[in-house]
Design a protein around this nucleic acid. Structure first.
Lengths: 146, 146
DNA sequence: CTCCAAAATAAGAATCATTCGCATTTGCAT
DNA sequence: ATGCAAATGCGAATGATTCTTATTTTGGAG
């Protein structure tokens, strides 16, 4: 499951060398079903005894985003960027404003909308970003607490 | 048009004092149909001969966001936050990845979706953020240029 | 109108995420 | 096995945003 070359072929399609750091980082992203910050990735890699520097984490992420293997997003409220694999099915996340948990939701309500934008404004959509905020099932009763 | 107390009543509803800085900042946001960064606001205020410090711009924006008068958003690709008035009709923006222009689009495709999230996941939506990326009409022919 | 306490602002230091520079190491084609 | 380009480590640099403290302004009470 946790081979050191698991992502060799993927990396090769981007003309990227297969290094232990890149493989471990991709594996960590894959194991986490949810988007992670650079620092979270850094810490999880350390837990796996992968010796890596934080700037390398950032550099690898930048490279993978450029190649389209990873998606970077940034919450309106947060200062840190989030990263997740892009080879999965298109989906979005629900952000609970109370417990801060993130819930993935398969599917996307925007396909028709993108066509409408093309028709009405001549805008050629290449991607989008959707964050939904609110209260998750467990927290909805505490909506007043602040 | 450009009275110094134009937003006095609005500010009062938030228990905020009516200061020249807050009025001028709100006026500047209103005059710009598009979201602005803190620094852009700072510069536009200087052009209007409003003497203000950048940290005050940030502090006022934070206050207005807390009160719900201003909406803060952050692009997945960008490092700077964007601010716009929230008393207008709900809308979204198209971001041209080539010329960097921002195009507002009235309306929102997500109303039904939010109800679906409530029904299926018990998630109580309080807000959302949608960025759409692509090529505007003028730039779409240069999609290959990079 | 004057005075006061609370709120707001200026100025710049501090913080935090992210990027950069350069010396060293590693992957991989030959 | 060898060499060179690509990748990494480490710490310094950057840039947006926040914080600290002294000073000024606002809005209400008298």
């Amino acid at each position: 499951m946790s081979g050191k070359d698991t992502y060799k072929d993927l990396l090769k399609t981007g003309n990227l060398k297969s290094t232990k750091h890149r493989n471990a980082l991709l594996e960590t992203l894959e194991q986490s079903g949810l988007p992670l910050t650079a620092e979270e990735l850094f810490l999880r890699l350390k837990e796996k005894n992968v010796s890596i520097s934080l700037s390398t984490v950032y550099r690898i992420l930048e490279t993978l985003v450029d190649k389209g293997f990873v998606i970077r997003s940034q919450l309106a409220t947060g200062n840190k960027a989030l990263y997740e694999l892009s080879h999965k099915d298109h989906h979005h996340h629900l952000h609970c404003v109370r417990c801060r948990q993130i819930f993935p939701v398969d599917g996307c309500p925007l396909e028709d909308y993108e066509q409408l934008l093309a028709d009405r404004f001549g805008f050629t959509v290449t991607g989008h970003n959707l964050e939904v905020f609110g209260y998750c099932e467990k927290c909805k009763d505490h909506k007043q607490d602040g």
